[in-house]
Every structure is written in structure tokens, then in C-alpha cells.
């Protein structure tokens, strides 16, 4: 019996070492060690072994069984190692083969720039507000200190609707609407679309985007305005900017300014972008006119504020150096798709 066991062992060793894969190995495992396996069968003959020999034979059986088991485990281990080693070989692999790209849509550049501006202001505690595009004469003009027959109405060629309403010519009606809605002090921006009755060409649109900013508090000064503009524009342009204020007339601010930014292209030494002046006109701003505070329901002896209007469409054009404003609403997907 012991001889048979030894023979089995030798046979198994050879077979296991030659097993080419896991399936063959599994077959051998069942063939030797399974319920009807060769070694198990031998074991069944134990009852015929003389009782005195049983411990010795039992020991051999266990040795052989253990040896076969460990041979299988070793072979399995080496087969696994070979399988993994094979998986780690790939002479055909090409990392530069392009994979399928998920379709990612573009956000319109006006949206992207608007969001950037909104982030800057939100970080400084400004509310974000939104107001109607069709407005009344009162909100768009009268409450902004532009009565009927005022020459300043010429500065803002207006689309009129039948019935007397109009398309807002600026985001400034939000000044009055926000003063009516919020108790001072407060600060807010209101971005949105505005309309001017104007023939369109590469640099003029009848429809464009602005953001208005308003800060109402007890003692707002020109020095505060300059500081705020400088800070905000620095955040928007993501670099230090030099600004200057010069007198500008807008009936709803007093004093009123045009804010120029030192030319970002030439740094102020003069180039074609700034028409060799070193400065680029960027936004109108000023201290809120006392009449406008009154129209908004605030006492100008108690409250003051600054306001500005920034052309977002223009900012988009500057940022991406877009040559034709008509692309913005042109619906040509070759334009929009660039902003994915």
C-alpha cells in the first residue's frame, strides 16, 4: 500500500508540474484528492490494513496527501504568476490611440464672464439680483433723474413698445428697484441684457450685456468708489490694474465719472488698442445722485452710495479678443463650440 502511495505521489508530482493551466490543475486536484480521487480511494483501503501498521500507513497517507496538496498549491501559484506576468506584457499597446470623448457642451462666453464677475462680487458680500428687460419709462428714465424731454435721452437710443413700455437701455433701473426692495445698507449687482436702438456692425449691437453694481451706505465717498473699482477690476482681470476717473455725465450719478483702465495691451505706453492714449474707457460710475436716492425712497442726507455699469459683452470681447460683436448672438456653433 505504501508502494502504491509512493507511486501515486511520483505520478502526481509529474502531472502537476506539467499541468498547463488552472483547468488542468483543477482536474488533477479532483483526480487525486476529490471524493473519488486516487489518494482517497487508497485511503478507503485502510480498513484492510493490519491495525498495527495503521499508524505508519496513516502517516504515509497523510504525507503523500500533504505533498500533493502543496504541489498543487505551488503549481497554482506559479501558474497565477505566469498569468499575471502575461497580462503585464502588451507589445501592441498604444497610449496615444484616442478614446471616445464624452460630449461636453459649451457655456456661452457671456455666461462664463458673467459668472466670473458674479463670483468676485459674491465673495465681497454683494447680492445678486435680476430685473425685467421690458421696463417702464419711470424706472428706466424718470426715476434715474432723466425726465421727459431731457437731452440725455439721446444718449440712449431706445426701443419703444406699443403701449409705452420700453426695452431697458441699461441695467440702472435695478438701482431703483433694489432700493425699493432692500433696507439700507446693502450692496448688490444686477447683470443682464440691455437694448439700444442702433444699427449693428462689427463693434455695435442693439443687444448686449451689462452688469450694474450698487452700494448703499451712510458715508460712501469718491475715495471708496475708486478703491472698490480698483479692487473689483483687479479681481476681474486677475492682475493689478491702474485706473483713472475723469468727469463723465450721467444724470443718475453726481459726481459722475468715466473710469479708464490703463491699457492692458501696452501697459500705458500707447498702442493701437488704446488709440495711443495709454487708457481704455471701461465703465461709467459715480456717486448715486440725491434725486435717485429719493426716487428709491432713501433720504440723501442719511444715505449715499456708488454705482457703476460694466459692459459684459465688451469684457468678453476684450478677454477673448473677439473681432466681431455679432458673433455673440450669431448662433454659429463654430463660435460657441470654442468655449467648451
Amino acid at each position: 500500500m505504501i508502494d502504491r502511495l509512493e507511486a501515486l505521489r511520483a505520478e502526481a508530482d509529474a502531472a502537476i508540474a506539467g499541468a498547463p493551466d488552472e483547468a488542468a490543475l483543477r482536474e488533477l486536484e479532483v483526480g487525486y484528492l476529490g471524493k473519488k480521487g486516487a489518494i482517497t480511494e487508497v485511503l478507503k483501503g485502510m480498513k484492510d490494513v493490519a491495525p498495527a501498521d495503521r499508524p505508519r500507513v496513516g502517516q504515509v497517507v497523510n504525507e503523500v496527501r500533504g505533498a500533493v496538496e502543496s504541489a498543487i498549491a505551488r503549481r497554482r501559484e506559479s501558474l497565477e504568476a505566469a498569468r499575471i506576468a502575461a497580462l503585464c506584457e502588451d507589445p501592441t499597446f498604444d497610449a496615444t490611440l484616442p478614446g471616445p470623448v464624452p460630449r461636453v457642451g459649451a457655456l456661452h462666453p457671456v455666461t462664463q464672464v458673467t459668472w466670473h464677475v458674479e463670483e468676485v462680487f459674491r465673495a465681497m458680500g454683494f447680492m445678486l439680483l435680476d430685473y425685467p428687460e421690458v421696463e417702464t419709462d419711470w424706472y428706466n428714465f424718470q426715476a434715474l433723474n432723466i425726465p421727459a424731454d431731457h437731452p440725455a435721452r439721446d444718449m440712449q437710443d431706445t426701443f419703444w413698445l406699443e403701449g409705452g413700455h420700453l426695452l431697458r437701455t441699461h441695467t440702472s433701473p435695478g438701482q431703483i428697484r433694489s432700493m425699493q426692495s432692500f433696507a439700507p445698507p446693502f450692496r448688490a449687482i444686477f447683470p443682464g441684457r440691455v437694448f439700444r436702438y442702433e444699427r449693428i456692425d462689427a463693434s455695435h449691437e442693439h443687444t448686449f450685456h451689462q452688469v450694474e453694481g450698487l452700494m448703499i451706505d451712510r458715508d460712501i465717498s469718491v475715495a471708496n468708489l475708486i478703491h472698490s473699482m480698483k479692487t473689483l477690476l483687479g479681481a476681474i482681470f486677475e492682475r493689478e490694474v491702474t485706473v483713472r476717473l475723469r468727469p463723465g455725465y450721467f444724470p443718475f450719478v453726481e459726481p459722475g465719472f468715466e473710469l479708464d483702465i490703463q491699457c492692458q495691451v501696452c501697459g500705458g505706453s500707447g498702442c493701437s488698442v488704446c488709440k495711443h492714449s495709454g487708457w481704455v474707457e471701461l465703465l461709467p460710475c459715480g456717486l448715486v445722485h440725491p434725486n435717485v436716492l429719493r426716487f428709491g425712497g432713501l433720504d440723501p442726507d442719511e444715505w449715499s452710495g456708488w454705482a457703476f455699469g460694466l459692459g459684459l459683452s465688451r469684457l468678453v470681447m476684450m478677454k477673448y479678443q473677439i473681432e466681431d460683436i455679432r458673433h455673440l448672438a450669431g448662433g454659429d456653433l463654430r463660435f460657441v463650440a470654442q468655449f467648451r
Partner: peptide, 17 residues
């Protein structure tokens, strides 16, 4: 906007009012 552009894969356009 973020969902439609970045998940649904649509491009944002602006049209006149």
C-alpha cells in the same frame, strides 16, 4: 446651465429677444 452643457452635452446659444 451646467447640467445641460456639461452633463447633457448641449452648447449654449444666445438669440435676440
Amino acid at each position: 446651465r451646467i447640467y445641460l452643457a456639461k452633463t447633457a452635452g448641449l452648447d449654449e446659444v444666445l438669440s435676440y429677444a
